[in-house]
C-alpha cells in the first residue's frame, strides 16, 4: 500500500519522491489540511477506499497512513 500512496503523493500532489518515506509526516511533505481532503477524495475515486480526512489526519506518519488505507481494503 505504501507504494500506491507514494505514487499518489508524487503524482497529483507533486511531492519530491525522496521525501516520501514511511517515517515522514504530512508537514514534512509540505501538505496542508486541505491536501488531506483531496487525498481522501482521490483514494475513494482511484482505489475505491473510503477513509475520511479526519482519520487520515490522525495517522502520525505516511507509513501509518498507508497501513490504515491497506486495512480498508485497498489493493496492495
Amino acid at each position: 500500500m505504501f507504494t500506491a500512496l507514494r505514487d499518489i503523493l508524487v503524482g497529483p500532489f507533486k511531492v519530491d519522491p525522496e521525501k516520501v518515506t514511511p517515517e515522514a509526516t504530512l508537514e514534512q511533505l509540505g501538505l496542508d489540511s486541505l491536501s488531506v481532503v483531496e487525498l481522501s477524495l482521490i483514494l475513494e475515486k482511484d482505489l475505491g477506499v473510503s477513509v475520511t480526512d479526519d482519520e487520515l489526519l490522525q495517522t502520525p506518519t505516511i507509513g501509518a497512513m498507508a497501513e490504515l488505507i491497506g486495512e480498508r481494503g485497498a489493493p496492495v
Binding site: 486541505l34 481532503v37 483531496e38 477524495l41 480526512d53
Partner: peptide, 10 residues
C-alpha cells in the same frame, strides 16, 4: 471551516 467545506463542496 476549511476542510469540511472543501469536502462538502466537492
Amino acid at each position: 471551516e476549511g476542510r469540511d467545506t472543501f469536502r462538502h463542496a466537492v
